[in-house]
């Protein structure tokens, strides 16, 4: 867009407008995941037998995916670092690396889910699996959305345009990583 309103150029709080908006996005995401995970934890505490269902989740796949997301977060923050120094090409390369991380995460998830569904642990099997697929699925949707947005931003990066957006998608990506940091022990480790 050629023309931007003057409103966009002001920053009375000292936080640039884009970043402030992303903080609000993250704040509203906190309550979405908070409500879902809170409901899960309550059920988990009243259902001691869920530990017997949780043993069928694959801790190693979960741990590998945690490693993948942590590493992609590192490359996202390195992309931000490159962008603040005005190096759009380098930022784009780091973003692609992050996108690859998101891709690997989804592929691993796909294999995990296929295996579990084949064993009969579908979303309707019982409430544990219902929460398992809903929570991890909602998170996976966020991963996919992040990858798509990052792809769009990386194209601008190559032209050295809109470099501040690298930080914005980075913050979102770190949040997605953060959600997984809690999902991993909740769904995989606690047995």
């Amino acid at each position: 867009m050629a023309m931007r309103p003057i409103a966009t150029t002001r920053a009375m709080t000292g936080i640039p407008t884009g970043r402030l908006a992303v903080w609000w996005v993250i704040a509203s995401e906190i309550v979405i995941f908070g409500g879902l995970l809170g409901s899960y934890i309550m059920h988990r505490l009243v259902n001691p037998q869920w530990a017997n269902y949780a043993i069928h989740t694959n801790t190693w796949a979960g741990a590998f995916n945690t490693l993948v997301l942590l590493t992609s977060s590192l490359s996202a923050v390195l992309a931000h670092h490159a962008a603040t120094h005005g190096d759009g090409k380098k930022a784009a390369r780091y973003l692609w690396f992050t996108m690859a991380g998101g891709g690997i995460f989804i592929v691993v998830k796909a294999f995990e889910w296929t295996h579990e569904i084949q064993l009969g642990y579908t979303i309707t099997a019982n409430a544990f699996w219902a929460f398992y697929y809903t929570a991890a699925g909602l998170h996976a949707l966020h991963v996919i959305a992040g990858v798509v947005i990052m792809g769009i931003i990386s194209v601008d990066c190559l032209k050295n345009q809109e470099l501040h957006r690298v930080e914005l998608i980075g913050n979102y990506w770190h949040f997605v990583d953060l959600v997984w940091i809690f999902l991993f022990p909740l769904l995989y480790i606690a047995k």
Binding site: A27, S28, I32, G35, L36, T134
Partner: peptide
């Protein structure tokens, strides 16, 4: 609105 609607969004999905 932003701080309260989240749990219901999760609930709507459920």
């Amino acid at each position: 609105f932003m701080a309260s609607v989240g749990p219901l969004v999760a609930g709507a999905v459920m």
